[in-house]
Design a binder for these strands. Structure first.
Lengths: 187, 187
DNA sequence: GTCTATACACCGATAGAC
DNA sequence: GTCTATCGGTGTATAGAC
C-alpha cells in the first residue's frame, strides 16, 4: 500500500519538525524521532535513506509551505510599488521569524554535510520565481535589484532572530528599508 | 611555567582553526585537532575545559582579529559621510568573506550548544563600539540607524557567502546599499 | 601539571533474524 | 516492515604514569 507508506513518512517528518522546534534543528536525533512515532531508530531507514534525506524532505516542506503562505496572501494586490515592496517583505519576514528551525533549514547552512537535492530545491526555485514575477509587475527586473532586495530582507531577518528573538526591533525597520530601496529604484 | 601553557593553548587553537578552514567549522573533532599538535584527544582537556571552550577561545580570536583589522585600516579617515559608510562597510565585508569558518563562528549560530562566554564576547562588544564611535562622527547615533546599517551589511555578506562564495556578486552592491542608507539619513 | 590509556554514553548507519 | 545486535565515530570523564 503506497498510501500507508506516504502516511508513515509524513508522521516521521512531523516528529522531526517537533524535535527540531523543541531542541534545535541540529540536535535532531534519529532515536528521538523514532521514539515519537513508536519505532526504533533503524526502522526509519525503511522510509528514508539517511538522516540527511529527512532534512531534505523537511527542506522541501519548508519552501512549499512558504510558497503556499505567500500565494494565500496574494488575494488583495498592493496599489503602489512602495506598498508592494513593503508587503512582500513583511510577509516573508514574518513567515521566517515565526519558526527559527525552519528558517535555519531554509536559509542557513546549519547542518554540516547537508545539501538539498534538486527535487527538494524545486519549491525554493518556484518561490523565488514567484517573487520575481511580483517584482516584475512593478518594473523591478534587473538581477542586481533583486539581489539587493533579497539580501536586505535576509539581513533584517537574521538580525531579528539572532539579537532579538521574539521581539520586533528589526521588524520595525522593514518598511523603512523597503522605502529606501524604492527611493533608490526611482519608484 | 605559564608561558608554556599559553603557548600550548595557542598551538591547539591554531590547529583547530586549520581544521575548521579545511573541513568546516562544525566538523572539527578533538581527535583531529589533537593529532595536529601531537597529542591524544583527552589531553586537550588539560588546556581547555571542553570542546565548546575551544570554540569560545576561537570566537574571541576572531573578533579580536576583526578589531585589529578595522583599527589598522583607520590610518586615513574618510572625508564625507557617504565615503565613510562605504569604507567601513567594505572593510567589514571583505574581512568576513575572506574566511567562511571564521564568519560562521562570529556571526552565525552554527555550533549546536555553543554560546560565547562574556569574556569571549568582550572583543565583539568593543568592535561594535568602535563602529558606533566612527558612525557617531558622522552624526549617526540613533540605535535604529545602527541596527539598519548592521543588518544590511550582514545580509550582503550572508548572500555573498551562501550564493556566490569567492565571487563579487553582492560585494558590488555594497557601495550602492550604503548610498541608499546615506540618502535616507540625509547625508 | 601534562599526558596517556581506558571506558562510557551517545550518535548515524548496517546486517540479518523474524 | 520492524526488530535486535553491532560497528565505527563522537565528546568527555576518570585513573594513573611520568
Amino acid at each position: 500500500m503506497a498510501e500507508r507508506r506516504t502516511a508513515t513518512r509524513r508522521e516521521i517528518l512531523d516528529a522531526a519538525w517537533q524535535v527540531a522546534r523543541e531542541q534545535g534543528l541540529a540536535l535532531v536525533t534519529l532515536r528521538e524521532v523514532a521514539a515519537l512515532v513508536g519505532m526504533r531508530a533503524p526502522s526509519l531507514y525503511t522510509h528514508f535513506d539517511s538522516k540527511n534525506a529527512i532534512y531534505d524532505a523537511m527542506f522541501e516542506d519548508a519552501w512549499s509551505e512558504c510558497q503556499r503562505y505567500l500565494l494565500a496572501a496574494d488575494v488583495r494586490a498592493p496599489r503602489t510599488a512602495r506598498s508592494a515592496l513593503r508587503r512582500y517583505a513583511l510577509l516573508f519576514f514574518d513567515f521566517c521569524v515565526s519558526d527559527l528551525a525552519r528558517f535555519q533549514l531554509m536559509n542557513q547552512r546549519i547542518i554540516p554535510g547537508f545539501e538539498p537535492s534538486p527535487q527538494a530545491y524545486e519549491p525554493a526555485v518556484t518561490t523565488l520565481e514567484l517573487l520575481r514575477d511580483r517584482l516584475a509587475r512593478w518594473g523591478i527586473e534587473r538581477q542586481q535589484d533583486i539581489d539587493l532586495y533579497v539580501a536586505i530582507i535576509g539581513g533584517l531577518i537574521d538580525a531579528q532572530l539572532a539579537n532579538d528573538p521574539g521581539g520586533r526591533r528589526w521588524r520595525r525597520l522593514v518598511p523603512r528599508a523597503m522605502d529606501m530601496l524604492a527611493q533608490d529604484l526611482g519608484l
